[in-house]
Each structure stands twice: as structure tokens, then as C-alpha cells.
């Protein structure tokens, strides 16, 4: 049991980079970007193939970052300059990347088992591995927080919050969207690269369903830790990602659940998390409206009574 919890934490930390990417598009830019499923595998593919060809694993991971940045920029350009609906732009890139990823690897999967990776020096003991991962993820999180507080970062956040306003203050929102989606997929690809190095292989299907897992992490994190400031919001995403993995680890121990039910469970978590607040808000609104109209009707009734 303990080993599976440790495994869940380390995997959660690796995937939290992907979740941070989803946070940038889904929450900051308000842009539902499905490129993630493709760019995650792109990151894995680039890093795995570069490692098998003898490149330093750092260079291989930077290569994955570059691949993700380019993929995201393409989606951003399709949406802003090509005026393609955001969801569709992401789906198009995702499908295109599926073929591109096989081209990158030359075959559907590539193994990096027994090759030097970023992870191999720290892989054992598990306590050290988790500590190293945690420190690395926190450094990336702090860098992201800092970026979001720069002039460019503020413009990026305003693009998702009130694009009309930031345009009237001289920001080209097409550019900020492209930068944001690009940065997001860069993080996603690095996450995919670490996943490939951790698991020992890259596979064309490794990204399937990642967008939903990322969303689940963002939503779980927000529900528990809130999103009052950027600092808290990004921290919440990381803990959301770890927590999601722990929930999954427990779910897999339920006797009548199969490992293949995982995606269904993930989808259900996201659906509940998205629908629940809407229902709550509608109920609250309805109750308030009823209360107010009752109040107002008694006031008008007494007014008319006074006039007679």
C-alpha cells in the first residue's frame, strides 16, 4: 500500500506540470485547449528519441519543452489568426500531433530503460526521489508565479479576464493568447518528457485523456485550497494533481473496479466538480429571487393600502 502511495505522489508531482499547463489555458486564458493530449506525447517522444540517440537528458528535456512550445503556438495561431474555434483548433492540433509523434519516434513507442535519464540518478530511494521532484516542481511553480506578475504576465491574465479592457490599454490579445497557449503546452511537454523518463518508455497513446486529468487536478486543488492569489492557485494545482493520483491509487484497490475504469472515474470527478457549483448557484439565485419578490410584494401592497 505504502509503495503505491509513494508511486502516486511521484507521478502526481510529474503530472502537476501538465496540470499547471492546463491551469494556464483553462483558468487564466479561459481557453479550453485540447492540444494537451497530443503535446504531452510529443514531449515524451522527443525526449525519449533524443536520449536513445545519446543526447544529454537535460538537452533532451529542453528539446521536449521546445516541441511543446511550438505545438502550443500553432494552436494559438490557428485560433487567433485563423479564427478557428478554440476547441476545434486544439482538436486539430491534437490529431495532427498523433501522426507527428510517430514520425518523431519512427515507430509507435521508444524505450529508454537502462539509459541515463534526468531521473535515473535520483530514482532510489523513493523518499529522495519525491524530495527532488518536489523541489524541482516548486521552483518551476515559483518561476511561473513570478512570470504572471510581470507586465506581460498581467496582460496575459487580463486577456482571459477582460480582453476588451486590456486591448484598450494597448495589448495585442492575439499575441498574449499565443504566448499563453504556447507556454502551457511547453509545460505539458516537459511533464510528458519526465513521464517517459520515469516510466522507461514513450508511447503515442501516453497523452490520451491528459486534458481531463489536468482539469480534474485543477478543480480538486481549487475546491480544497481555493484560488485567492496566483501563489495559492498554482500551489493548489500541484496538490490537486497529487491528491488526484492518491484517489486513483485507492480506487484501483476497490475489488470490483478495473484499471480500465480509470478514465470513466476521472470524467465523473470532473463532471461532478463542474456541475455542482452551477446547480448550487442556480438554487441560491432562485431562493434569493423568491425571497426578494415576496418582500417587494408586501411593500407594494402596503404602499397601495396607504394611498386609498
Amino acid at each position: 500500500m505504502l509503495t503505491s502511495i509513494y508511486g502516486a505522489i511521484s507521478l502526481g508531482l510529474i503530472l502537476s506540470l501538465m496540470a499547471l499547463g492546463v491551469y494556464i489555458t483553462f483558468r487564466i486564458l479561459d481557453f479550453p485547449d485540447l492540444t494537451v493530449d497530443g503535446s504531452f506525447a510529443t514531449g515524451g517522444a522527443i525526449s525519449a528519441i533524443m536520449i536513445t540517440q545519446g543526447y544529454n537528458p537535460w538537452i533532451a528535456t529542453l528539446g521536449a519543452l521546445a516541441g511543446g512550445l511550438i505545438a502550443g503556438a500553432c494552436t494559438g495561431v490557428l485560433h487567433t489568426k485563423g479564427k478557428i474555434n478554440g476547441l476545434l483548433a486544439g482538436i486539430l492540433m491534437m490529431i495532427a500531433l498523433y501522426s507527428i509523434n510517430i514520425r518523431i519516434m519512427g515507430k509507435p513507442n521508444v524505450s529508454v530503460v537502462n539509459l541515463p535519464t534526468l531521473i535515473s540518478p535520483f530514482h532510489k530511494p523513493i523518499g529522495l526521489y519525491i524530495a527532488v521532484l518536489f523541489v524541482a516542481i516548486i521552483i518551476i511553480k515559483l518561476l511561473l508565479d513570478a512570470f504572471l506578475k510581470t507586465d506581460l504576465g498581467l496582460a496575459l491574465r487580463a486577456t482571459g479576464d477582460n480582453s476588451r479592457m486590456i486591448r484598450s490599454f494597448g495589448s495585442n490579445t492575439d499575441t498574449t493568447i499565443i504566448i499563453g497557449v504556447s507556454l502551457s503546452n511547453g509545460l505539458v511537454a516537459v511533464s510528458g518528457a519526465l513521464m517517459a523518463q520515469d516510466g522507461g518508455y514513450a508511447d503515442t497513446t501516453m497523452g490520451v485523456g491528459m486534458i481531463v486529468i489536468g482539469l480534474a487536478s485543477v478543480i480538486i486543488g481549487e475546491a480544497i485550497f481555493g484560488a485567492r492569489t496566483v501563489f495559492i492557485a498554482t500551489l493548489a494545482v500541484i496538490f490537486g494533481s497529487i491528491l488526484y493520483r492518491i484517489v486513483v491509487a485507492f480506487a484501483l484497490r476497490v475489488p470490483w473496479l478495473e484499471a480500465s475504469d480509470l478514465k470513466l472515474i476521472t470524467a465523473l470527478i470532473v463532471i461532478v466538480a463542474l456541475v455542482l457549483p452551477t446547480i448550487q448557484r442556480a438554487m441560491k439565485q432562485k431562493n434569493l429571487a423568491r425571497k426578494r419578490s415576496l418582500e417587494l410584494s408586501t411593500i407594494t401592497a402596503s404602499d397601495q393600502g396607504g394611498k386609498r
Binding site: 506578475k149 510581470t150 507586465d151 506581460l152 498581467l154 496582460a155 487580463a158 479592457m165 486590456i166 495589448s171
Partner: peptide, 30 residues
Amino acid sequence: MAGTAPRMSIEENLAMAYTRGKKRGFGWGV
């Protein structure tokens, strides 16, 4: 609602107004 960004703080909104028409780079917003 149109002239300000609701999920950002007052000082962050002012910082965006402060950089009106200038190039926005990696300098601190506030």
C-alpha cells in the same frame, strides 16, 4: 464591468493602465 479586470487586484489593474501603449516585458507589474 468593461473597464477593469475583475479577478485581478486594484494595483494590478492600475499597473496595466500604467503600461498603456508601452511594450510589456518581464519587468515587475507592481
